[in-house]
């Protein structure tokens, strides 16, 4: 891990792993755990660049930086600063929202887009929430709906170190700041998804109870030529719960 990258004047934590074709990985509600097995697996095929968004993890957040608009423009700078001409962009959950926004704006720097259980748009009617309100739902219910097998995968907060808990709280606060209202979507994004011209894979955990596979299908249908795939026995975090299947699917997509 490096904690010294400075992009656009912001000191950034970046996890780097592996070698091969470049992948920019944008994390979800929680920052990427450097020990996560999927990093090692994917690292055999790709050079992974996984920054923590400003305000998350150990990345700084300027005081006037508190909207997804800021994050998207920050990542446009980030893409410009990468030495690679093109990258595969993978966005998980909240990071999937950022990835979709970036793919709308910056087609020329991407050679592929993977949205994984992504937030970002409004699919259902106005009285049907698409995305579980994690801030107004009991923590037990949030965990139950996050995993196919919560007993195995829900984090045991008592077992985490002080540092890890502080990072979780920081991530929680940043997510709330950026995503509180409208809750985890940009009302304007849906109509612009048609601008995405890079090959796109929309990947979903079949048991995701945070944002359901039907939402993913709807998302996919709005992106020209995109493919929708389910990962079985996985909830909102297929990269963690089914790391092997996740990596195989992503690698197959990259080698298409």
């Amino acid at each position: 891990m490096s904690a010294g990258d400075v992009i656009g004047g912001i000191e950034l934590e970046v996890v780097r792993r592996g070698a091969g074709r470049p992948v920019l990985l944008l994390h979800g509600a929680q920052t990427v755990d450097p020990r996560a097995p999927f990093l090692e697996m994917l690292g055999h095929h790709a050079e992974i660049i996984a920054p923590s968004h400003p305000g998350f993890g150990r990345s700084a957040r300027p005081a006037d930086f508190e909207t997804v608009y800021d994050l998207v423009h920050f990542y446009l700078d980030f893409l410009e600063a990468l030495p690679h001409e093109k990258v595969t962009l993978i966005g998980l959950s909240f990071g999937g929202w950022l990835a979709a926004e970036l793919a709308v704006k910056c087609r020329h720097r991407l050679d592929g887009l993977v949205l994984v259980d992504a937030f970002g748009i409004k699919v259902s009617d106005r009285e049907t929430p698409d995305i579980l309100d994690v801030f107004n739902t009991s923590p037990q219910e949030v965990q139950r709906r996050s995993w196919h097998d919560p007993a195995t995968w829900a984090p045991d907060l008592d077992a985490l170190s002080d540092d890890e808990l502080v990072i979780r709280a920081r991530n929680w606060e940043a997510l709330c700041l950026y995503g509180w209202n409208p809750y985890m979507y940009n009302p304007q994004l849906k109509r612009w998804l048609q601008r995405i011209t890079v090959p796109t894979l929309v990947l979903w955990g079949s048991s995701d109870g945070i944002v359901k596979p039907s939402y993913g299908r709807g998302y996919s249908s709005l992106i020209p030529g995109s493919r929708f795939e389910l990962i079985e026995r996985a909830g909102h975090h297929p990269e963690i719960e089914q790391a092997r299947a996740f990596v195989d699917t992503v690698v197959k997509f990259m080698n298409r």
Binding site: F135, N136, T137, S138, P139, L157, D158, L160, D162, L165, V166, I167, R168, A169, R170, W172, E173, L175, C176, L177
Partner: peptide, 21 residues
């Protein structure tokens, strides 16, 4: 708890070890 101790912004992140466990 989601309306009180776990509410983002209600305590600084540094207080998380006291709050989350």
């Amino acid at each position: 708890p989601q309306y009180s101790k776990l509410l983002p912004g209600s305590a600084p992140p540094q207080a998380a070890p006291q709050i989350y466990r």
